[in-house]
Write a protein that binds this DNA or RNA. Structure first.
Lengths: 217, 217, 217, 217
DNA sequence: AATGAATGAGGTTTCATTCAT
DNA sequence: GATGAATGAAACCTCATTCAT
């Protein structure tokens, strides 16, 4: 009564959670935690930290609000948890593996424009969202810089090579492009980008990324 | 824990306002309004709509909080005013003028990386910040799309030419890059991008923008 | 801008002020004071003290808000002035004059249901409105009691006659009826009372008042 | 001067609440809601909507202010709840039952001057208080008109009888009298009405009501 | 382990009032 | 004498959090 939680306009948060996490049988701390993190990540990424209320998150996850404090101590604690999990999931994807620059670019594109998991691009957005929490923000910044180095490394950057400085910057520009792209597609939903297909995006993006990252002559 | 309004760590908002606006002579509505819009734009752009409090804005501008409501009706009204002013100032800069694509690119770079006015890049960020206010958000989206078309037009796009669809998308990718870039430099302040000089950025950016926008064979 | 004063739904306050008081030539303290009191009385009577804002009053009177404080010290001071003026204007009307009870009743009816001046009934309402101001409220109560005694006197009440106590009570019931009537007609605007004509009201009211006040056997 | 919230001088709000509602056992939403409605009704009725602050209501009820919003959404929501409850409690009392006009009059008198529950008369006052809330005000007016018809029906009024129009008006005059009476006794507390006993009031009131409502020749 | 009631801090806004011009 | 800018107090409301069950 006078208490309803108004739903956002464009994303149905709860609906997109895996069913086994939303419809929980009742008492399983582990499952509850995961459901909360998942719900929180979507909200934080798309709406920002301050605009996200813990009640929304709890409602999305289908659990009681008080559990957020019980499990994560505070809203900021939950944000940190989201960030850490994002980092954990991101890390294996960006680790430079044997393979040419082309392969790195392909992996990046997959993650950003045609991820099988719809949450993949959202994880990137989380790296832009500040919570004001010192700890989380430190993680956030460190992750972005780490990400930059990984990408640069795949493009031939060597920390000990003073000459390769520009590569770092170029890698970061690539990241800037990806972040801007996801932002416009997901949070801002501006056309025609928001409804562009993976096919339409692949060509120009590949071109740009190659210009930035491919240093072979 | 968690609830105090923390002062931003990296930007000294009030200090960076033009002195003639901070040290206000006293009673001049016009000056006060401008001081408020300036202060608000910085806050909104760097911290987002929700995280920004009217008290902070007023403090930055050196005036009483109530004046925000007096002059702009509400926080949302102030946001709209910021947006409108941004649109007004942005528009002449992005209008396609006689000149090659190169010139457009040059103007864009100037605005983003070496603007004489330190607030220039911030204006772009406003275009990413949602306020929840229907009106302002509509303006925001429309501006982004208008911006896209202007940029595309400079690159040879013609609305009536069905074949030039991809150009629109490419122009928007250029915008995504610019927005991501400003975001990382200004709000996130990630290294090495945040402290990169205009010189360092110009070359790779020019290259990328030309790949995206220059359709001459 | 964002500053408009919204007008009430049913009464056009400013419009009903005498023209010579609204369209003031400029600088005449006396006229300004009267315009303010008139405007204030309407607002206070119909909307209550707290719901009335000094800005509305000033707008109705067509003068600057600050003048209220200049002339009356405060909102409460203005309320007191309204009350006093109401008392002054009411007093001669209720003074028992030579004549039978019938005449008193006739005068009362005239004042309440067919006053030539549309503001007459409103003055009564003011006697119900509390401002929280000690002074004004004392005046208010005293006036009501004085009013009661005057009416009772006309009906044959003598202060020194212990037996005539009930007459006082009956007179006050008559006042209660008048106040309730004006309230329902003016502030609440409930049908069919609000749109009943003087003709329709006269008969039943006369009957009731005679029952209450006419003690002749 | 002027701005402090002054405590009412004559009614001790909290003290007059039933003890079981003030000394709340602790955590029972149902009890809390009722305590809030009770406290609110007293304040709204005696001081009016605008002059009543939610803090006062919460203090009277002995609970935290935020609960008003939790349970009723807003101050206006609480007002609506008060109104609805008043309507519900009033309705059975005014429904015309088999019996003569005399009986209706007796019931009315009981409610107004010798109600076993001291809050009974206050409920009537709520019908006079406007909140500015469209919804509540519509209910308010409708209730008054419904009340009029019920009373008129008991006095022989038939909707389909064109000749009985005056009865409606007479019934409404009876209501006006009751409202004015309660107003003067409760909110204004003017003497001698305020301290008159039920006995003293019964005779004149009965007389008047019979004149208004008894249409038997 | 989980729930829902309750709290307190802080946000936006309104408004009477005072200050300069 | 009059105006409009500016102020500070307080009102309503939201929300993260804690308390009892």
């Amino acid at each position: 009564m006078g208490n309803e939680v108004q739903e956002p306009r464009t994303l149905n948060f709860a609906a997109s959670l895996a069913e086994d996490e939303l419809v929980r049988s009742g008492r399983d701390a582990h499952v509850t935690r995961r459901a909360l993190v998942r719900a929180a990540r979507r909200r934080f990424a798309t709406e920002g930290y301050r605009a996200t209320t813990v009640r929304h998150i709890a409602a999305d996850a289908g659990v009681n609000v008080a559990l957020i404090n019980r499990y994560f101590g505070s809203k900021e604690g939950l944000f940190e948890a989201c960030m850490s999990r994002t980092v954990d999931e991101l890390d294996p994807n960006i680790r430079p593996r044997p393979g040419s620059v082309d392969e790195v670019i392909a992996r990046l594109l997959t993650h950003v424009v045609e991820g099988p998991n719809a949450d993949d691009p959202l994880q990137l957005l989380l790296l832009l969202r500040s919570s004001g929490d010192e700890n989380a923000d430190a993680i956030r910044r460190r992750t972005l810089e780490h990400f930059t180095e990984q990408l640069a490394a795949a493009a031939g950057w060597r920390a000990e090579d003073a000459h390769s400085g520009p590569i770092l910057l170029r890698a970061q520009l690539a990241i800037a492009l990806m972040l801007g792209l996801v932002m416009l597609r997901t949070a801002t939903e501006v056309q025609p980008l928001a409804s562009a297909s993976a096919d339409q995006l692949t060509e120009p993006l590949e071109q740009v990324l190659r210009v930035l990252l491919d240093t072979r002559d």
